[in-house]
Each structure stands twice: as C-alpha cells, then as structure tokens.
C-alpha cells in the first residue's frame, strides 16, 4: 500500500543529539503531511533537508519550534525532544522554546523598524540586556557574526526593509542569533536571493556551524552538498533516506533518492 509509512534508510541517530524525533506524524485536517519520521539532529553540524515540493520538509522543520501550532487544523503527533525534554510537554513554554530554536524564513522578513530595532527586538522581549550598553553590544556582536556590520554600521537607524534582499536575510539571521539560540532552523533561506548573496549566506552558515546546530531546508542540491554534514531526503511525507552528505550524494541507497539527486524527477 502506498500510504503506509516507509522505513527510513540510513543512519537516523547521532551521538549526543540536540533534537531527537521519534514517530512524528503531522496532519493538516485530513491530509497526512508527515508520516512516521524518525531522525536525530546533531550539535554543531548542518542537517540539510531536500526533496521535491510538497514533500513535507518545511512542515517537519516547523515542528521543531512548534510553528505549526499557529496553523489552524494542524496536528502534530509523536515525540520530539530537545536536549532530552519533550517540546510538546505541558511544562514546555512555547515562547521559551522559540527563544532556544531560532528560525530564518524563506522570504526575508525584517520588521518594519530600524536595523538596530530589528536585532534588538529579541534580546529586549526576552530581557537579555540589563542596560542600553549591553543591548548595543549584543546588536553589534550579532551584526558582526552575520557579516553585516561593515555594511550597516553607519545606518543602524535606517529601516531594515531598505536593505537589499541578501542583506535583509543576513539581518534576519543576525536577529535570530541575537537571542543566542541552540538551534537555527532555515527554511529555504536563499531561494529569493541571487548567487552572490547566496554564497555569502552559505559562508555564514559554515561559520555559524561552529556554535549552533543548523537545520536547513533547500531546493538546491548543490547548496545541500556545500553546506551540510548530514542530508535527509523527504518524499511525499516520508523520510526516505538520511545519512552523511557525502554518502547521500555519492552513493544513495534508496532508489527514490538516487532518482532525485540525479535529476530524474523533482
């Protein structure tokens, strides 16, 4: 039967995972969007999620910081733990979860406020800075780590939306790392950017990997190969194959994975 969950090929576990997902199912109303996904996400490494459109990779990503809660009719089942703690637990506050698991979206979405305010927003609502000096320092550090400081240091009071698309996306990354999360989720962060801006974001992801676990959804297999250490291939809600990026791209075990990465469909 087609609808039955398929068993994932490859290594789903890692040593000392930050996220550990077991038997995760997602339903949008009657639609079974994610079927029995099991996967670990490791520290200080990049996990790339690839697959054809509508395969559920973004849906799965949004489970990790419970953004699916905001969608009417969405239902998440199964067990997702962050540092061993169930994120759906009643004890787990969703606001706190999202402070620990930052997210960068497909389309750059800076707030319609100044560059400074964009980065300062997270620290401010979470009370991370005791005074203005500390806040300035956090903004400065975050913009530097996002590689944006040199370009915007003279115009921090200008609107974030006045920046170019690539700069806006780096501003969104700076905004995310300003609250010092453990994991950063990226939902096709480069799909609206030109190749030069994309290259800068990819370099940035490489640097951020030193400190954070990163999950990135991408449509570009080259990007997945360039930035990630592990790759997961989704197909119609199934996690078909997961493993070291090198292995997936050189020696895929599943037929579906092979067809996709060799460009036979998708």
């Amino acid at each position: 039967m087609n609808d039955a969950p398929k068993t994932t090929i490859g290594t789903i576990t890692v040593a000392e995972p930050v996220f550990s997902c077991r038997n995760v199912d997602v339903y949008y109303g009657d639609k079974h969007a994610i079927k029995n996904v099991n996967i670990d996400i490791g520290r200080k490494q990049v996990l790339a999620m690839i697959g054809p459109s509508g395969c559920g990779k973004s849906t799965f990503l949004r489970c990790l910081n419970r953004m699916n809660d905001t969608i009417v009719g969405a239902r998440v089942e199964g067990n997702i733990t962050l540092d061993g703690q169930d994120i759906h637990d009643k004890q787990q506050d969703v606001v706190q979860l999202r402070a620990r698991v930052g997210m960068v979206f497909q389309k750059p979405n800076p707030f319609p406020k100044s560059i400074y305010e964009n980065v300062a927003y997270g620290p401010r609502i979470h009370g991370l800075a005791a005074n203005r000096g500390e806040l300035d320092e956090i903004v400065n550090q975050s913009l530097r780590r996002a590689g944006l400081w040199e370009e915007v240091k003279d115009r921090l009071n200008q609107p974030g939306t006045s920046l170019s698309g690539g700069q806006q996306q780096r501003l969104c990354i700076a905004r995310t790392i300003a609250v010092n999360p453990e994991v950063i989720l990226m939902d096709e962060p480069c799909s609206a950017l030109d190749p030069i801006a994309t290259a800068r974001i990819e370099d940035l992801i490489d640097e951020l990997r030193e400190s954070y676990a990163i999950c990135i959804v991408t449509h570009s297999m080259q990007q997945a190969a360039r930035v990630s250490q592990r790759t997961a291939y989704f197909h119609l809600g199934d996690l078909v194959e997961v493993g070291d990026t090198n292995l997936i791209f050189t020696n895929p075990q599943a037929k579906l994975t092979e067809d996709y990465i060799t460009g036979r469909f998708g």
Binding site: N65, M67, T70, Q96, R98, G102, F105, P110, I125
Partner: peptide
C-alpha cells in the same frame, strides 16, 4: 510574514499583536 517573524523570535501572541 511579519507575524511569523515575531513568533519565530519567541514573541508571545500579545507581543506579536502589540509590537
């Protein structure tokens, strides 16, 4: 996208609406 950005930053619902 503005709502998602605010919620993704860990803003509460009220903060998202008010800010």
């Amino acid at each position: 996208s503005i709502r998602e950005a605010a919620l993704g930053m860990g803003a509460s619902r009220l903060q998202m609406v008010a800010h």
